[in-house]
Amino acid sequence: MSASLLDPPPHISPQTALYLSQQAPHILKSSPTSSLPWPLSLLFTSETPETWAVHENLLLSCLRTGDDKSARLCLDRMIARFGDDNERMMALKGMYEEATAVDKAGLEKVLKEYEKILAADPTNMAVRKRRIALLRSMSRPADAIAGLVELVDSSPTDAEAWAELSDLYVSQNMHAQAIFSLEEVLLITPNAWNVHARMGELLYLSATASASGATLKGITESMRRFCRSIELCDDYLRGYYGLKLTTQRLLSLLSTHPKPSHATTDPTVGDLAAPSIVTVQKLHELATTKLAEIIRRGSSKEAGWSGYDQAELIAARELLDRDAQKIER
């Protein structure tokens, strides 16, 4: 529980969120802005940029844990400081209203509000994203996708938007579009190992769903994506999990197609040939040993190995167990 409000982890577990929001009374007790008149207030204020980062994160945590009163207080303070027409404040205010809306009609009202803001100022990216998030949570994915496509058209360097778009496409089973969007994310952040791994997952999904001719190619690329993600981040559990899964699949595929290496190569586009069965075998062994090591060390919380998500560790163990059973049989 070393999470701080200033720099919270990207994925906040429920316990952490609760812990963070419980700091609300302590933070809200002291006012950051001084109540003295203007020239004196400059001298006696304790305000720093960090103050407002803390307030924003506190607001988010409070909304999540249902402490709406503290959230309102945070919001009021930030609005008093930055004004009603600040883009970020508009988005945060909308978020508060979304969280406190009791029924669908309330959400519709918030949505109308967003559309009004956007009509007045179409460059307000924060509110635009809120609108899309709201559409998604109201289970209107088609509208959300339309909004996102419009957003990435006017702002194609927004990795967050592309990633969200890819996620939405996956939820609609549109794998080709999802992969395209994720490739855009990779173009913006070429060394993001999690995006590489996610790409591998998508390729695996689409390959298993597609016809048998494209399966081998898809799985091969998926495996290479996982390799890349491990290359970028040592001991990346998700990467090894995917690597094991794909190599297992590849082994069975390659054994049924004895001579695949030249058939799938298309020299015009220069796509890569399928790897040799020996390499895949080796990679499979590597993934298995590495996964076993990560599970052993991660669940015994050895120093330097404690960062793994419990659920992911359990899933990885389950994968290994499944493998072991197959051998026994």
Partner: peptide
């Protein structure tokens, strides 16, 4: 205004594509 943002970021996108092209498969 929005078209200007679009213009600038589209150029950025081209530059991104050029500098990070090696994450893509040849066909894409």
């Amino acid at each position: 205004i929005l078209p200007q943002i679009r213009q600038q970021r589209s150029l950025m996108r081209g530059i991104n594509l050029r500098t990070n092209a090696n994450v893509l498969s040849p066909s894409s």
